[in-house]
Design a binder for these strands. Structure first.
Length: 426
RNA sequence: GCGGCUAUAGUUCAGCGGCAGAACGCCUGACUGUGGCUCAGGAUGUCGUGGGUUCGAUCCCCACUAGCCGCCCCA
């Protein structure tokens, strides 16, 4: 019988790597808090219809990458419900916004989430079937200013700050506008028209895209097709006046606060709900999966899933990939305990636990050895696990004077038990 | 979903149709209340799983599974 393993595309996160995950999440929470975002936690599974309608029936995510199953009907009168593990979190947040009538507050809702998402894709480095995203959404009624380009710029500025505080160097921001819900169909129609006579000259993939999703032709990497792509209509020429002004205002605000970016007229996003501003932060050294995070504005999403008019903008950051770049950038951090308490003799174990308890209650990070170890072994273990060792033998117990040795300096001192905490803290 | 590469000790990897190897790590001792460095010794294992070829397979062949890389797509 084969041994049980984590299923394909899932994995365990173990120390010390989890230290890095906590660092990322704590940093994100700290930064979001400064912008007055609050945390939202939505269920990991939802009615399949939410994603089908919200994300778009025709997207790959919905058509072939979802974990979907029929829930059991509890009674004969009840129909089995189709449920799906969330492939992304924006639809869930907007559903919660509608369900709890958050628009009725008249205020902008600024919500962030941190949690697992699920897509049934072929696993690769930085791409897992259970993956983790950190994201945030700014959503609200138009009267609260939810359509303002200032919101877009503020979110982008916040992300630049977050990446800086995470210590990510060399990130790159690309932005674009895909126009309003009215502009986009006009542009897609023009694209189809322009592609008609030339698509047979392009690679197989692009011929297929020209049919199924012409927008995707734009970010094709095929070198032979670049010349044709460059001559295709630009979406910027199809934006109405208000979309143009909106995008210009986003850029102006970014310029004002010195956040570097480039406008990429080919940046289209895969999800159907995006309108106007779209953006992506990328990082080299991630191979083909070079996007650290992406997002955009979704002025019509709430209405698509049956809610009130509630324009919004948000992003999702791939935490797995972020960790990869951090690991590549920084040497693995060692996490030594402050002290290794070494009882010398099994009879001293209970008293050693009491000592360790006192030190831990004082806030120290403490490893506790075992009186069954020989002294040499205590030192070997202590040297691997902690910065200092505290010897606790008969002498020490009776005299109340503890022996402390610093592994780095080799210095050894005798310290009265009452004074030990500051010595260990050094 | 498609293509390529890979799978051997705790880890990183070498290797060969005929008893399974190295380095690091681990254990023991030199050193019985003193770690790191050094030296001497020791144990590593269903060679991913299942079939096939063969006197004999860890090695060759097939399938499966998993990982990595790329494609599709996407954060």
């Amino acid at each position: 019988m084969s041994t049980l393993k984590a299923v394909r595309g899932t994995r365990d996160l173990l120390p010390p790597e989890t230290e890095l995950w906590n660092f990322v999440e704590e940093t994100a929470r700290r930064v979001f808090a400064r912008y007055n975002f609050g945390e939202i936690r939505t269920p990991v599974f939802e009615d399949t219809q939410l994603f089908a309608r919200g994300v778009g029936e025709e997207t790959d995510i919905v058509s072939k990458e979802m974990y979907t199953w029929e829930d059991r009907a509890r009674a004969q009168s009840e129909k089995a419900q189709s449920l799906t593990l969330r492939p992304e979190n924006t639809a869930g947040v907007v559903r919660a916004y509608i369900e709890h009538k958050l628009g009725e507050t008249g205020l902008l809702q600024k919500l962030y989430y941190i949690g697992p998402q699920f897509r049934r894709e072929r696993p690769q480095k930085g791409r897992y079937r259970q993956f983790y995203q950190i994201g945030a959404e700014v959503i609200g009624p138009p009267s609260a200013g939810s359509e303002s380009p200032l919101r877009d710029a503020e979110v982008l500025e916040m992300l630049a700050t977050l990446l800086d505080e995470l210590g990510i160097t060399g990130w790159h921001l690309e932005i674009n506008s895909v126009g309003s819900a009215m502009d986009r169909p006009r542009y897609v129609a023009a694209l189809r028209e322009a592609l008609g006579p030339v698509k047979h000259l392009m690679c197989e993939d692009n011929q297929r895209r020209a049919e199924t999703n012409p927008l995707r032709v734009l970010d094709s990497k095929d070198p032979g097709d670049q010349e044709i792509i460059d001559k295709l209509p630009k979406i910027a020429d199809f934006l109405d006046e208000s979309s143009k002004a909106h995008f210009a205002a986003v850029c102006a605000a970014l310029n004002a606060c010195g956040v570097p970016y480039t406008v990429n007229p080919r940046l289209v996003r895969g999800l159907d709900y995006y309108t106007r501003t779209t953006f992506e932060f990328t990082h080299g050294g991630l191979g083909a999966q070079n996007a650290l995070l992406g997002g955009g504005r979704y002025d019509g999403l709430s209405e698509i899933i049956g809610g009130p008019k509630a324009p919004g903008i948000g992003f999702a950051m791939g935490e797995d990939r972020l960790i990869l770049t951090l690991e590549a950038q920084a040497a693995a951090r060692t996490n030594l305990a402050d002290a290794y308490v070494a009882p010398m003799g099994e009879g001293l174990n209970p008293a050693a636990l009491k000592l360790a308890r006192e030190l831990r209650r004082a806030g120290l990070r403490v490893e506790l050895g075992d009186g069954g170890f020989r002294l040499k072994k205590s030192f070997e273990m202590g040297n691997k696990l902690a910065r200092k060792i505290v010897l606790f033998g008969e002498d020490e117990q009776q005299s109340g004077i503890l022996t402390v040795k610093d592994f780095a300096s080799g210095e050894q001192v005798k310290v009265p038990r009452a004074d030990i905490v500051p010595v260990l803290r050094k």
